[in-house]
């Protein structure tokens, strides 16, 4: 099936199996390895990318569903000022350990702050509830997001 979509702000036209997972399309066909497979069933959030600005699980998206959509992975997002802010705050708050979940958390943070630039603690917890982390116990990731919302005032 012919699939036309925007990937990290570039127009793409490809011919693929419409059932192929967006996750594999990004990793295998485009070499975008920031997108991780942690479970393949929408539970862990390691494969989160932005679709039209919103966080989505790329393991749950068949290629046929991205026609006309704008897909942004961390490879695209990491060029932005918002990314730089999240990076700095995650570093300062100690939000990173093994790092396998981290790209998904970065994308979920962007989606959350984009919708709600000044979230409460509860809203942050709910906003990140689609991302599993086994190392940090979450509190230091939540701190990182709080810091980004505070320091990044105006960015979102």
């Amino acid at each position: 099936m012919k699939i036309e979509f925007t990937l990290n702000n570039e127009f793409k036209s490809i011919n693929v199996d419409p059932a192929q997972r967006l996750l594999d399309l990004l990793r295998e066909d485009f070499g975008l390895t920031s997108v991780k497979e942690g479970c393949g069933e929408g539970e862990c959030g390691a494969c989160i990318v932005l679709m039209d600005g919103r966080a989505v699980n790329s393991c749950l998206i068949p290629a046929g569903n991205i026609i006309g959509k704008s897909i942004v992975t961390l490879e695209g997002f990491r060029k932005t000022a918002r990314y730089k802010m999240i990076e700095k705050c995650f570093l300062d708050a100690g939000s990173v350990q093994c790092g396998f979940c981290t790209p998904g958390f970065v994308m979920a943070t962007e989606s959350l702050l984009n919708e709600n630039p000044h979230p409460t603690d509860e809203e942050i917890k709910a906003g990140l509830s689609g991302n599993l982390c086994r190392c940090t116990g979450y509190n230091m990731i939540i701190d990182g997001v709080k810091l980004a919302a505070k320091r990044g005032n105006g960015l979102w």
Partner: peptide, 30 residues
């Protein structure tokens, strides 16, 4: 198939594999 959140899990076959759809897909979510 609309969003795919149920079907893609039910038909999943594993790491880097295509889901196991036997019938043609009719995309209607959009």
């Amino acid at each position: 198939i609309a969003g795919g959140t149920d079907l893609m899990v039910q038909k999943a076959r594993g790491f880097a594999l295509k889901p196991d759809f036997r019938k043609p897909l009719l995309f209607i979510g959009h």
